[in-house]
Computed example of a mutant assay.
Amino acid sequence: MNAPQPSDSVLIHLVGAGPGDPELLTLKAARVLSQAEVVMVDDLVNPAILEHCSKARIIRVGKRGGCRSTPQEFINRLMLRYARQGKRLVRLKGGDPCIFGRAGEEAQWLAARGIASETVNGITAGLAGATQCGIPLTLRGMSRGVTLVTAHTLDDTDLNWRGLAQGGTTLVIYMGVARLHQIQQGLLDGGMPATTPVAMIEQASLPDQRQHVCNLNKLCVQAQAFSLKSPAVLVIGEVVASSSLLAGQQSVEPVMALEPMLMGAVSG
Rank of each mutant, 00 (worst) to 15 (best):
S7C: 00
G20P: 06
P22R: 08
P22G: 09
L27Y: 07
K28I: 06
V32D: 04
V39R: 06
P47K: 02
E51T: 00
K55W: 02
A56W: 05
R57D: 13
G62V: 10
R68Q: 11
F74P: 05
L78N: 00
L78E: 08
A83G: 15
G86E: 09
L92C: 09
D96E: 12
P97H: 14
P97K: 14
G101D: 02
R102F: 00
G114Y: 07
V120I: 15
Q132W: 11
G134C: 04
L137C: 08
R140C: 07
R144G: 14
G145P: 07
G145I: 07
V146G: 07
L148F: 15
H152F: 00
D156A: 15
T157E: 15
N160K: 14
L164W: 04
G167L: 02
G168D: 07
T170Q: 07
V172E: 10
V172W: 10
I173T: 08
Y174E: 02
M175N: 10
A178F: 02
H181A: 12
Q185D: 12
G190W: 06
M192L: 12
M192P: 02
E202T: 03
D208I: 01
S227K: 15
P231S: 12
L234A: 08
L234V: 01
V235H: 04
S242H: 15
L245Q: 11
L246M: 13
S251D: 08
E253Y: 06
V255E: 06
E259P: 02
